[in-house]
Write a protein that binds this DNA or RNA. Structure first.
Lengths: 341, 341
DNA sequence: CTGAAAGCGCTTACAG
DNA sequence: CTGAAAGCGCTTACAG
């Protein structure tokens, strides 16, 4: 009873690997085509045979290989999405937008989180093997990972370094200018940027904010925070509030950090926006829920998703070049003035 | 120049489909093995040949088929994860936990959102084809979708109906009892449960809460909310606050709804917990950030992920039965008393 | 350094 | 109603 056809029914945990269509055929005493018919509910098979085949399949814990089947059937288009940290609500907001945009084009989405995965390299490589295109935040290691992805078309989201291939840029330009003018008109004199510490500090976002103030003759301190979380931002804010002169505006790297700033101000009994004005970036729905409601530079995630998918689909079809001006899009931030500034 | 080998280099958008290894081999004037060597950076190929092959591949926009490759190489294990709405922070919190648990076992995770996807049926089916096991929230349509998934092992999370296969249950039992005792001791007389309207109303969660109060001789009104969002919960709360007698405790279906309740109370000038006590379910980190900090029934998402993966891996390996007592696990809620109640 | 042969697991015509 | 043959696109030995 050796060889692949010698598998005993019920021997599902067989160390030699899982059962194939041939194993089931042998166990049921039929040909492989008959197994296909039974498994896929096709016509041209007697009820008795079908039952016997299904029983054999069950006993062997048989599952058709998605590779064997995909090779014949073609399979759906598959998009890989890389986000940096799912626990920051921005990531799921973006993921939701991408899933929606992808579904509209008949694509499936496979999600990967580089912050949560232990072995990011392996994960990126695995994603490349299983998908037809990859979209996402690669951060500093973009060149490395894009190389790892090999021949898979890649769309970088808000790339921080030089662009390797296709990209969707986030442009805070106009929104930052208008924000700074708003803050100056409100009498802000000692603004601080709470930056997310990364490989390149200050971040492009912080640099952009600083430049906008500098253009109007105001110096801005940039305070790096070890992690872009609410907790870290709150701790940093506690320190800032003890400084002399005390900052009268805190611009956070993102909304989640800004929420931490708000919490710290509340605990310290500091009025927002009366004594300190607080601003975030991302435009999370959550920001409208807190008190005071958060002023922020909103990102149109639906538009980002749409542009990214458009590029990805174009590259897969061979329409869009994989790099160069035609492979780059820009989505502008929008200033959302609410209560906190 | 007809036939698969007759593809002109640069003809990437060929309507007949994408280029195969044979197309590249023909274009470069080599055998298919040589193409494999060039594409995968293997040894035993001259620099000149390699360059020529790579150029041909690029011109044809060639990408190795993941099915062909997977059939030979075996491919990684792939887990499908179904969540109900990524925009509720609970979903990404769970997803993050699952990705983490999966990575530890060398599995990849493919995420699908049944609320965001237009054609949920098609999506569930596609997920089944591409994965080795599926874990997730199926809600009311569980039997239907599990049938659609065919032979893929399925682990239901917090199933609302009768369990079809394997499942991880969430048990609020002890935590609810302790919560209700706490509320009664604090003098609560008119509690309301803000329930998420679903196919089955009241939800099991709401029923559990109501029973705990009933056991202690107190009637609880159950108020259904059309969508389990903060906005809807806030609107419902505005109405509740105008009732006579005014509720002195609001138990929300989840934390996000509880945040909406807090926001509505704040806007109405109603003190929490002084005048109204507010409770959520899920234990989102976010709840610690707002003022007052949210009291909640916490779900240990890491434990849920661990148990679900354990079941999934066991079923794929044929160790764990696909249904029955050995295929069910339970994770208990934990009462997290903070400021809001 | 390069190529001819075999085979991964499945489905789709085609014959009986 | 059932089975023998061919082929999907790739990689892994094996020969030269």
């Amino acid at each position: 009873m050796a060889g692949p056809a010698g598998l005993t029914p019920g021997d599902a945990g067989d160390p030699a690997g899982r059962a194939t269509i041939l194993d089931v055929a042998a166990a049921a005493g039929v040909s492989r085509q008959t197994v296909t018919r039974a498994m896929n509910g096709m016509e041209g098979i007697s009820a008795a045979t079908k039952k016997r085949v299904l029983a054999a399949a069950e006993a062997l814990a048989y599952r058709p290989s998605r590779f064997g089947r995909g090779l014949v059937l073609g399979g759906e288009q598959q998009l890989g999405l890389i986000v940096d940290d799912l626990r920051n609500p921005y990531s799921p907001a973006l993921a939701a937008a991408v899933v929606r945009a992808a579904a509209g084009r008949g694509w499936n989405v496979m999600l990967a989180d580089i912050a949560l995965t232990g072995d990011a390299d392996r994960m990126v490589e695995a994603l490349g093997v299983q998908t037809d295109a990859v979209v996402g935040y690669f951060g500093k290691r973009a060149p490395e990972w894009i190389a790892l992805l090999g021949s898979v078309p890649v769309v970088e989201l808000d790339p921080s370094g030089p662009v390797t291939g296709a990209a969707v840029h986030l442009d805070p330009g106009d929104a930052v200018e208008r924000l700074v003018e708003h803050l100056l008109a409100a009498g802000v004199r000692h603004p601080v940027v709470l930056d997310a510490a990364g490989p390149d500090l200050p971040s492009r976002r912080a640099t952009r904010m600083r430049a906008a103030f500098a253009d109007r003759g105001l110096h801005v301190a940039v305070e790096p925070v070890a992690e872009p979380t609410a907790e870290r931002a709150a701790a940093a804010t506690e320190r800032l509030l003890r400084q002399d002169p005390r900052p009268d505006a805190v611009l956070a790297f993102n909304d989640v950090m800004a929420l931490g700033v708000l919490a710290a101000c509340r605990r310290a009994g500091v009025d927002v926006p009366g004594e300190v004005r607080v601003v975030g970036v991302d435009g999370l729905p959550l920001g409208a829920l807190v008190a005071p409601a958060l002023t922020t530079l909103e990102v149109d995630v639906d538009e980002v998703a749409r542009q990214a998918l458009d590029l990805a689909v174009g590259m897969v079809a061979g329409r869009t070049p994989r790099s160069g001006a035609d492979a780059e899009r820009t989505v502008r931030h929008r200033l959302l003035l609410r209560e906190s500034a």
